[in-house]
Amino acid sequence: MKSTLDQIKDIKNHGYTLDFSTVFNNAFENYKKIALYAGLILLVFSILFGILGSVLLAVIFGVEKLNNPAFFSIKPAHLSSLQLVYYIGGTILFSAILSPFGAGFLKMAYCADRDQEFNVSTIFTYYKSSHFLQIFLATAIISLFSVSISTFLEIQNLNLLGIVVSLMISFFTFLTIPLIVFGNLKAVDAITSSCILISKQPIVLLGLMITIVAALIIGFMALFIGILFTVPLSYSMTYAIYYAIFKNEKEDPIDSIGQSDLE
């Protein structure tokens, strides 16, 4: 079987087909299997992360500043050069550290698609996997470009352009993590490969992403907590898109004997 990079070379030269309805239906069927479990996990860990984040901010900046609403509306344009470095660096580090957590939902989608058992520990699969470093590096690189550019544009009072650039970067790199965890690519290869794959079917993929955004908006309107149960749809969709592109056959249980669950 061809390697992922070889398949991407073929796609770069010849493109690939992607059917909107097939991918959406596959994603929704997968979502139904993980929605409740993943939503509850997000709810619990959102509360835990919120408490931890509040405690850290209180320790670093003091409770008085946290009680001041202006503290949470600080704009990059009002920060010094050193504070900007801390701001960008902190954002990148935070995103990179949490990225394996998000990748765990892709693992959950993978297990659900193959009717394999999954549990809370599935979410932490890639923190103890050989893929951890590549996930961390890829997220750090993407965040560096996105945050640096958007921050620069915001300082220039081009906030809308900064948002557009950030969304474009997110769109063209959203297949990076599945390319690492399912395709075994290195960070830079995964980023460049994601851009190639997205550029070959931008209209269909954009349409699929818009459906995700619509679902998230509906979830947000449902007393906000609903968004926690619609977020898993984004992971099911990403998983479905990846396997629609590469059209990998589902693994035979006999063939998987002896293989690591972390692969």
Rank of each mutant, 00 (worst) to 15 (best):
K2M: 08
K2P: 09
T4V: 11
T4G: 14
L5C: 02
D6E: 15
D6T: 14
K9Q: 12
D10Q: 15
Y16E: 10
F20N: 05
S21Q: 15
F24Q: 11
N25P: 00
A27T: 04
E29S: 11
N30W: 03
L40S: 07
L40G: 11
I41A: 15
L42V: 12
V44W: 03
V44Q: 12
I47N: 08
I47T: 09
L48H: 04
L48F: 11
F49I: 05
L52D: 00
G53F: 03
F61I: 09
V63Y: 06
V63F: 08
E64I: 10
K65A: 12
A70F: 08
I74W: 01
K75D: 12
P76D: 08
A77P: 01
H78I: 00
Y86R: 06
G90T: 00
L93F: 14
S95E: 10
S99R: 03
S99L: 11
F105E: 07
M108K: 03
M108W: 06
A112R: 12
A112G: 13
D113A: 15
D113T: 15
R114K: 15
D115S: 14
E117I: 13
F118W: 01
F118P: 09
Y127C: 10
S130R: 15
H131F: 13
L133T: 10
F136Q: 00
F136D: 00
L137E: 05
A138F: 04
A140Y: 00
I141V: 14
I141M: 10
L144R: 01
S150Y: 00
Q156V: 04
G162I: 06
I163T: 07
V164D: 06
S166K: 07
M168S: 07
I169Q: 06
T173C: 15
T176D: 02
T176H: 01
I180C: 07
K186Y: 04
T192D: 02
P202Q: 10
M209N: 13
T211S: 13
I212F: 12
I212C: 13
A215P: 06
L216I: 15
I217F: 13
I218F: 15
I218E: 02
A222D: 04
A222V: 12
F224Y: 03
I225F: 11
G226F: 02
G226I: 01
L228P: 12
F229V: 04
F229C: 05
Y235T: 05
S236E: 02
S236Y: 03
T238P: 00
A244F: 00
K247S: 14
E249A: 10
E251T: 13
E251P: 04
S256T: 06
S260L: 12
D261R: 06
D261F: 05
D261A: 11
